[in-house]
Amino acid sequence: MNREEAQARMQEIQRIMERATLWTLLPGTAAVIGGLLVLAGCAASYAMFRSLDFADILNLSLRGQVAFCVMWFAIGVVGVLVEVVFTAQAAKRQGLSPSIRSARVAAFSMTPGVIVAMVLTFKFLIPLEPRREEIQYIVPVWMMLYGTGVYTAGLFSLRPPRVLGITFLVAGVVALLAFQEYGLVWAAASFGLLHLAFGFYVLSKQRQE
């Protein structure tokens, strides 16, 4: 074997290890924390407007509505930060850079969907006379777009993210076509409980030796 072949082999090994390592970089702990944050947010939301329908935010004072939006924005930001931190720690333990190509591609797969969801949320919430049915669309829209992003990110990884993504997508479609008045239930079930289940599943697999 000569130098060129040895070098080509090393590069191939590194490429495969990076791809396989996405499994160990899957954010199990971050998913559990994120799920708990969402469940706490849902509980707080219910305490604020005593309803399972997100559209009942319209019954709150302006101050209450702002507090509601700030709370959910903070939950989203903290959830993303927790994922970034835990992914970086996992990468460090594996001796890898957290910005390996496959991880970057997976992260960028989610970005368009999240941006669209944020734009639609802004569009539905901000008008001077917001419409109840548009506010009820917010949770299903987030479920479908988040699910699409997670599924696409999973195309570069292994099956669990694809299963999670498909579940979000299908549940989002059901939530949009029927039962959209139960937005709080959908948010708790999807972003809360599904993330918890996904996180515990990933952690249980990662800890098997």
């Binding site: 495969i16 099956r159 697999k205 990662q206």
Partner: peptide
Amino acid sequence: AIVSALAVTPELSFNELKEM
């Protein structure tokens, strides 16, 4: 390739390896 993938994961299923 199989050994490289298994070197950085606790385990992989047959289908996961096949896809990867």
